[in-house]
Amino acid sequence: MGSQTGATAQDKILLLATESCAYPGADSVGQAHASYPANVYVLKVKAPVLFPEKFYLDCFRKGIGGIIIMSCGEECPYEGAYKAMAKRLDRVYELMKEEGLDIRRLRLTAICTVCNRAFLNEVNQMNQIVHELSPPVQAP
């Protein structure tokens, strides 16, 4: 297990961005040179349905402050994946509550390849939330 030290790790926001929509959407924000907080890390995923409940909880345990799942929404190229994942998230929220994690730390949203404004909105909102909340894990 990696380090969980430092007061900054909990500020990091993870974006799980779909390869066909949100990831190019993040690139489009970059092409527009539109600035957003630098604590945002985009991971490219084929479909976020890949991640089990445990993955999210582990992320928070490791010190990730917030996760935004940026999917293609209804435009998802994998039929049924969006629904399956939305269902899984309900269980993740339950588990988060059990562990005393504020459920605002995890958001599911749809971002298209040209959704610059929506992208910026989402990351800025999440940034505000993680700054308001205390770290998900206490630094030793």
Partner: peptide, 22 residues
């Protein structure tokens, strides 16, 4: 999945750099 976990580990790790103010 293990590769994603490894990536998250590296993102939170302060091994390569300290965030400013940290």
């Amino acid at each position: 999945l293990a590769q994603y976990e490894a990536m998250v580990d590296m993102i939170v790790s302060d091994a390569v750099c300290q965030d400013s103010g940290a």
